[in-house]
């Protein structure tokens, strides 16, 4: 099978964070981990190209996934392997999106990353093979990815034994007994000593390590972010009031603070009367400007990011986090204040 491998700029050997903004490119000779993968896949299969892209560009530029998939298709490959991205959020999200788009374009597609990478949720219907935490586990990870790829090349579906992660959806179905009746049965089972019985497995959110304090706030570029649904009057970007699927950015430049009527909250999870009477209650631009004037912080970032956290899925929430972090890092922001409602 003719296979194309997607990696980020780092694994392509182009550079680190300083090169995260570069657009997608093709190398016709296998590059970086593609070489090892090529040897593991054997003579029947051929890695015809490595496609790579900077993580920031790929994760946050509109249309980036389409550009990448266009390059993949131009290689004439029949199969895509994306990653392994380990726990890298931007890289994982891009691997997930690229695998999904490649599968939809008719390629056999596979992504590889850690089970808790937010990119796992982006890949469906393409499968994801789980990996270790970091590139230190590249060797064993590539062994597993190659085995999974060979199985898929033979037309077989992956299972948990192949390291498949995340790709097992929980789907709605009707059962005979109502939930109340099942709850009473479950209580009786637990009273009788069954500590395992449950209809819902405990979710694993992973863990986020907070960043260390910034050395000198008076020199820092600080961003304001909110999940409080605060948008310019008229809601030009049509942000949803519940179950949001997107985030938006709006300018703060030249605004000393927010005025009643200029911005409104479209959040559907609380009464917005007080928020709309003084929008600074949701996005504290007034006090942030005071801190800026006092010199307590360096500068405020010129835009704010906003979404609605009201029935929003954890997968979308995790994706917004990765995209925001990428955007802010690219803009040189050192600290961000994210208000929640």
């Amino acid at each position: 099978m003719r296979i194309v491998h997607y990696v980020n700029q780092f694994f392509a050997g182009v550079g680190g964070e300083d090169k995260a903004g570069i657009g997608p490119e093709v190398r016709e000779a296998p590059t970086g981990p593609s070489r090892k993968l090529a040897s593991l896949l054997g003579a029947e299969h051929q890695i015809v190209a490595t496609v790579f892209c900077g993580d920031d560009y790929a994760a946050s530029k509109e249309g980036a996934t389409d550009e990448i998939v266009e390059l993949l298709r131009n290689t004439g490959a029949e199969m895509l392997i994306a990653g392994p991205a380990f726990t890298s959020g931007r890289y994982g999200i891009v691997c997930g999106r690229v695998a999904k788009a490649a599968k939809e374009a008719g390629l056999v597609a596979l992504a590889a990353m850690h089970a808790e990478n937010p990119g796992v949720a982006e890949a469906a219907p393409a499968p994801v093979v789980g990996t270790g935490l970091t590139a230190r586990e590249m060797g064993t990870t590539l062994d597993r990815v190659a085995k999974a790829a060979l199985k898929m090349a033979a037309g077989e579906a992956l299972t948990a034994d192949d390291g498949l992660v995340g790709g097992i959806p929980r789907l709605n179905r009707l059962v005979d007994a109502n939930a109340a009746s099942r709850a009473v049965d479950l209580a009786l089972a637990r009273l009788a000593g069954d500590r395992q019985a449950t209809e819902i497995p405990m979710p694993d959110f992973g863990a986020v390590s907070p960043a260390g304090p910034i050395a000198d706030p008076s020199q820092a570029l600080v961003a304001l972010l909110t999940e409080g649904g605060l948008v310019p009057a008229g809601n030009p970007g049509r942000l949803e009031s519940a179950r949001s699927t997107k985030w938006l950015r709006y300018p703060l430049e030249e605004l000393p603070g927010l005025e009643e009527g200029s911005h409104v909250s479209v959040h559907g999870g609380f009464s917005t009367i007080f928020a709309n009477a003084d929008p600074n209650r949701i996005l504290p631009l007034d006090v942030a400007r005071e801190l800026e004037d006092e010199g307590a912080i360096g500068n405020l970032y010129a835009e704010y990011f906003v979404t609605v956290g009201n029935g929003t899925s954890v997968a979308n929430g995790a994706r917004y986090g990765v995209e925001w972090a990428a955007e802010l890092r690219k803009a040189g922001v050192q600290a961000a204040i994210l208000t929640s409602t």
Binding site: P125, P127, A157, T159, R173, L174, V175, A179, E199
Partner: peptide, 9 residues
Amino acid sequence: RLTCATEAP
């Protein structure tokens, strides 16, 4: 009577 269950892909 709705609930959720997993299904193999």
